[in-house]
């Protein structure tokens, strides 16, 4: 099974009013992008051999007064295509009702994990105010996908999301599965070190900020990392993710397809590791 772990459905036509499009562009820094029908996504998935998309919302209600897709919209999209779309929740840690929103998202909406962006939501991952949220995720056995490294979104500072900021969380909550998305780029070596040391730390491939898909993935897998680092050290901790619509699912997949690796490792990268991260496999 091929699973894209990192998709922002900011322009899925079924949830996009003109006001929503404007809000999503402003929050996400997407500018010239525009809505498209779900049918387009389904045709892409079938043609490029992608079985599931994990859809991510982002709650910035306390900081920016809005959302880059709400938890309820994620649930609605999942219901439209239950065989294709899986979904996460998001809460703004500074919202007074963050814990109630998260509980509702897990218990009532059936969302599969939590998406947080420390840079956009302006918090340090090891801040004690986050403990209750982490404990709620452990209570429901749900993973957290953190933005890590540079974020293009406006109003984001990298200081909140450098990979080393997550080390205390990994140590304090070894039963909590956390993903430092985007390879933590440009701090990909730091991310590798955390994956090596902590089995509950994952990363995803949702970065393609420079060059062609082939060149960028070659840079990560063969230059920033040694050619065997991933295969021989943390093969169970890197997941295919695109950051669509910023980077197209098919293009990131094309870049990964160009990297030499063993077949069993590629299966883990493209879907097996996501199933374990999501708690669906041991």
């Amino acid at each position: 099974m091929v699973i894209d772990m990192h998709v922002h459905p900011a322009f899925y036509g079924e949830i996009c009013t003109p006001e929503k499009v404007k809000e999503h562009k402003k929050i996400g820094g997407y500018d010239l992008m525009g809505p498209f029908p779900k049918e387009e996504t389904c045709i892409q998935m079938d043609h490029f051999g992608v079985d599931r998309l994990v859809l991510l919302p982002l709650d910035v209600s306390a900081h920016e007064g809005g959302h880059l897709v709400t938890n309820e919209e994620i649930r609605a999209l999942m219901d439209l295509e239950p065989e294709r779309f899986w979904g996460f929740a998001s809460v703004d840690p500074d919202s007074p009702d963050a814990l109630e929103v998260l509980d509702y998202a897990f218990k009532n909406l059936g969302l599969m994990g939590l998406k947080l962006n420390p840079s956009k939501q302006a918090f340090y991952p090891a801040d004690p105010k986050m403990d209750a949220i982490y404990k709620k995720c452990i209570q429901y056995n749900k993973p957290i996908l953190f933005h890590a490294g540079m974020s293009w979104e406006p109003g984001t500072l990298m200081k909140y999301s450098v990979p080393l900021n997550f080390e205390e969380v990994a140590v304090k909550y070894p039963q909590l599965r956390i993903c430092l998305a985007h390879f933590g780029w440009p701090f990909a070596v730091d991310t590798a070190a955390l994956c090596l040391k902590y089995p509950n730390v994952y990363t995803d491939t949702s970065a393609m900020y420079m060059d062609s898909p082939e060149k960028f993935m070659d840079y990560i897998f063969n230059q920033a990392w040694g050619p065997l680092w991933f295969q021989n050290n943390f093969a169970k901790q890197v997941m295919f993710g695109s950051n669509n619509p910023r980077f197209r699912t098919a293009r990131v997949k094309r870049g990964l397809d160009s990297i030499e690796m063993r077949d069993d490792v590629r299966e883990k990268l493209m879907g097996g590791n996501a199933l374990r991260f999501l708690g669906m496999e041991d």
């Binding site: 997407y30 500018d31 010239l32 992008m33 293009w152 420079m210 910023r246 980077f247």
Partner: peptide
């Protein structure tokens, strides 16, 4: 290609 770079106007890489 020279176009293989991040495009701030889209918030995406032009590949």
């Amino acid at each position: 290609y020279a176009h293989n770079h991040f495009l701030p106007s889209y918030g995406a890489t032009g590949n």
